[in-house]
Design a protein around this nucleic acid. Structure first.
Lengths: 254, 254
DNA sequence: CGCGTCCTTGAGCTTGGTCAAGGTCTGTGG
DNA sequence: CCACAGACCTTGACCAAGCTCAAGGACGCG
């Protein structure tokens, strides 16, 4: 058993040996402390190092011309900010902290060394695909009403954080402002406030700006139409018994 | 010069040798013809083969419980449907055709062979990252008004299709219904119709269900706040001269 | 104690959804 | 060749979700 968030996350997607764990743990220092609401990488940057969140909470974001910020992903402990540094030049989005965090900067060459270990390559590829699935789920969710969308987000957070031991009994730390939440959902701060109130009155979500409590996760998942398949976790919270089948009249190729 | 869409796409992201091109071209047969609106892979499937679009138009989609379909990506010639088959088990989304298409099915083992060629691995990784950037751009776009969002989509299509020689002079084939367009934008069919009318009256977009004409791409890009950075193409259409800088009061780490 | 940041709520307006009706186009069978 | 059906497009009327503006309250920190 390890307390390293990178290792415990990757164990969900790949089979690692002790030597792999040691190699991964060696990556995770030295850590830099970054306070809340700091920019780490900006759109257009060409960073030399790969950044990894070890503690706290970061996000991917894009700024719009009207000054709005769109948050496209949350980065929890064990999540990489820019693993692709060696392939793409400029960043097409920014990275910032939402809460006080510990970040590691890993030189590009160290990452290239990792690529010689096929089990680690596989694990990192798995993590990338989960990130992609998560973004897809956000995109689908963005087309729905704000209350469902917000409920879906909280379900996802519970499932993700439970998988790395950061949530128990339907509660977890989530120190963000309502404005941050609005940037995640593409909603105004006023509407976030009213939506939170509605979910609270339904007994689905309690949130005080620091911590989230979900009194009845199953009921919340039903309300949100949440299905954790996209997280590709073995024993995900809120897992559905069976897959929904096609509704429309379309027919299958061949 | 090749007419193979996979090769000409990957040349934008990696440097290939003749032997690499030959190896890639060998993948691309035999092709299967699939008519429009057919399901190719469904959510929950565990496909054995990797599917690649060679001609036509496909999409990634998710079905919601109310029967709505959310299209999360468009698959043009040269795009893989499920390159990750070896890493993830179940599909967390479906793949379908929108237009009549030619599809290749590549056995998993052939893909594993490809992974021994580092230039091809790099090229495929680049393609995956571009897909990811594209999805991120859709997510950001989803938070904006339908007319801007639609304009953004048409700008993206122009840039992507120009890069593979499928668009000239601001016009390209795009045989989808307004309902399909609604599924891409998360908008109702009625609103799609009215939005198309508004863009037409502004002289920005002409679309007849088969073909798109953009009379003034620069003006459209300005309206859409389109920036092709996320496509990571060397000589992208509609490229902006400089990157926008941070507006908010946030400060940088360190 | 005072200021800044964040939360809360109401009022009015805009965007976009739903419903309904009719129009166009195309392929098929008489 | 025409009639018809089905799929898709178009438009108007009305309603609901969500945005902006505005004002005030709670809380924490220097």
């Amino acid at each position: 058993m390890t307390s390293n968030p990178l290792v415990s996350k990757l164990e969900h997607g790949a089979t690692l040996r002790d030597e792999d764990r040691a190699q991964l743990e060696k990556l995770c220092e030295p850590m830099v402390e970054v306070s809340a609401r700091k920019s780490i990488i900006e759109e257009g940057d060409e960073p030399d190092d790969v950044h990894l969140v070890m503690q706290g909470l970061g996000c991917r974001y894009n700024l719009l011309e009207n000054g709005n910020r769109s948050i496209t992903a949350l980065l929890f402990p064990g999540d990489f900010c820019n693993l692709h540094v060696a392939i793409l030049g400029q960043m097409d989005h920014g990275i910032a902290t939402l809460a006080p965090s510990h970040i590691v900067k890993i030189p590009r060459t160290t990452i290239e060394d990792l690529m010689n270990n096929p089990r680690i390559v596989r694990a990192l590829w798995w993590a990338t695909l989960v990130d992609e699935g998560t973004m897809r789920a956000w995109l689908v969710s963005a087309g729905r009403q704000a209350d469902r969308q917000m409920a879906h987000l909280f379900c996802e957070l519970l499932a993700r954080l439970e998988a790395v031991g950061l949530a128990t009994e339907g509660t977890f730390d989530f120190p963000v402002t309502q404005e941050d939440l609005g940037d995640m959902l593409g909603a105004s701060i006023v509407h976030v406030n009213k939506t939170l109130k509605a979910l609270r009155e339904k007994g689905l979500v309690l949130f005080d700006g620091k911590r989230v409590t979900l009194p009845d996760p199953t009921k919340l998942a039903e309300f949100a139409e949440f299905d954790p398949l996209y997280l590709h976790l073995e024993n995900a919270a809120l897992k559905k018994p069976s897959r929904p089948r096609r509704v429309s009249s379309g027919s299958r190729a061949e």
